[in-house]
Design a binder for these strands. Structure first.
Lengths: 179, 179
DNA sequence: GCGAACACGTGAACC
DNA sequence: TGGTTCACGTGTTCG
């Protein structure tokens, strides 16, 4: 049969592409295809966030723009090229992302609870607090602990009406976090 | 058969991940899976190149002077005009001092415990953490709470041998704190 | 033996 | 008509 051979080649091609994708995505948590795909989208979103940050802060000290910038980001979310869809799937054992950083946001009433876990390097405490200052959030409570190379941090901030969106907050903070 | 259902769900999951990947990769030339995968790797490489470009085209300012500055300060301490003596006493009930800021330092072993009390303005949390970052102290633990206009904060930092001096640390931190 | 993950051949749909 | 892509059920391997 010719059909079986064609299908064989199709599978072969697909697997080759999968292999190529593995080559460009770092920290592929597990070797299975589904995890590879979700790791890839997460990685792409992190790269996008990093680029957006670098582009907005190429010219120094226009620092009060950030709030409106964030609004824009949250509006355009999941629409155009600005889309910041983040890994709905498994909160798997993949651990910290490419930047050794894991962040979680929970909206509770007028406030948001943010928990961050990362490696204890580059003064992560100062970085999160600085990011929240730049975003002009009122910080009600914050605590952080380091043990060896691991850093755990959680803060409670007041969030204005317009931006009570867990994913939006997450990517906005993440964007200012990865320098 | 249970097997057929498991495989069905596996395919469903995989297709969902494919759909998520399509959402974050722009210009998906054709709708077929293989093309999507190769477009994804191309896009990732594009983002990487852009980041490398942006990172190389931004100037860095070295902030490594602070540590030696601090050493100097601690040497000249209580001698000339550089002295920055504040609020020797315990964190009394008098409330914040003239600067709306009260700071206390206690050396304990290789670490120092710093407690700060001030009015809740100008993002005091970010300012203390930033000051400690600039002074290149390892922060082991930090916590802060705000209630109305009052802010309370305490941190535990590691202090190198040469500067285990409560008054010196206090004025060094204070100096970087009032901008 | 079970669950997970994969490769395979086959039927169907679409130019 | 082929040529190409997909979904499906099945066999198999591995922990």
């Amino acid at each position: 049969m010719n059909h079986v051979e064609a299908e064989r080649q199709r599978r072969e091609k697909l697997n080759h592409r999968f292999y190529a994708l593995r080559a460009v995505v770092p920290n592929v948590s597990r070797m299975d295809k589904a995890s590879l795909l979700s790791d890839a989208v997460a990685y792409i979103n992190e790269l996008k966030a990093k680029i957006e940050y670098l582009e907005s802060h190429q010219q120094r000290e226009g620092n009060k723009r950030v709030k409106t910038e964030m609004m824009d980001t949250m509006d355009n979310q999941s629409t155009a090229t600005t889309s910041t869809i983040v890994d709905q799937g498994r909160p798997g054992p993949g651990g910290p992302g490419p930047f050794g950083l894991e962040i979680d946001v929970k909206i509770v009433g007028p406030d948001a609870m943010v928990t961050v876990q990362s490696e204890n390097a580059n003064h992560p405490g100062a970085r999160l607090m600085g990011a929240l200052r730049d975003l002009e959030f009122q910080v009600h409570h914050a605590s952080m602990s380091c043990v060896n190379d691991l850093m755990l941090q959680d803060v409670v901030i007041n969030v204005p009406d317009g931006m009570r969106n867990e994913e939006g907050l997450k990517s906005a903070i993440l964007m200012r976090l990865d320098q």
